[in-house]
Design a protein around this nucleic acid. Structure first.
Lengths: 126, 126
DNA sequence: TAACAAATCGATAATTATTATCTTTATTGT
DNA sequence: ACAATAAAGATAATAATTATCGATTTGTTA
């Protein structure tokens, strides 16, 4: 049987995402891997981000200024997005929150699979 | 002093958004106004959605399949997005939720201005 | 380890939602 | 009605993402 995720470049993209709390977009990843993989192409980054998201290795956590931002930390947590610089910061909420949201019933929804909570404002560098 | 929002078409866009719970995108609005305003252009819809959002009359509530979805109901509430058909449904949470989120402190955030809570799953028509 | 099959890649073109431009038209205050 | 300004239509331009396709890499199997 063929292993998934066996290519060098896909592995590098995934490991870069694992190593950072930047919640980067495709271009950031591309720029940060260019030195190690000079023949990397931006299309490969997009292609692998999509594959990694489809197999559940990573998540798209927000769209900031029209760009998808990714995170390899797949355990449930929320995010803060700076309205000025676009920085994305992890937000860890107490158990109460998940307990609360688990009780939510949505009229018109057959099944709730996930939710996304994003705070917006100004970060401490702006 | 010049009034804002005085043009017929901007008014029509705003009133259409007020009258529906579809949370439409620009194209839906364009298609639904074409019969009443045959010379309407899609650019005008985009331009006015942006203006209306800037002056606080409407809100962008989600990006579904790469399209911005708008809502003229500006009172705080959340949304459910169907992963299959893209339908956006209003979600009204109890007071507990706002009380809870008001207590949140985000490390790295200077000021929290707003938040967005979106549930994802399958709607009852899918 | 050679050879074949399948996955992945780079380069490039194509898509698509949105924004900008620019000239004309509509709206409003006087 | 007239002048000043805002808004409109038409169109071109952006920009992020996706699709295509031939070449290359990787994995399997003989």
């Amino acid at each position: 049987m063929r292993t998934q995720n066996y290519s060098r470049k896909r592995q590098a993209i995934y490991e870069l995402l694992l190593s950072t709390r930047e919640h980067p977009n495709a271009e950031w990843i591309y720029n940060n891997l260019k030195s190690d993989y000079p023949d990397l192409s931006l299309g490969t980054v997009y292609r692998n981000l999509k594959l990694l998201e489809e197999n559940g290795s990573i998540k798209s956590v927000a769209v900031v200024n029209g760009c998808e931002r990714y995170d390899a930390m797949t355990s449930p947590h929320s995010h803060f997005v700076c309205n000025k610089c676009g920085r994305v910061i992890d937000v860890f909420l107490k158990n109460e929150f998940s307990e609360f949201t688990e009780k939510v019933r949505v009229e018109g929804a057959k099944e709730i699979e996930s939710f996304s909570l994003i705070y917006y404002g100004l970060c401490d560098k702006c």
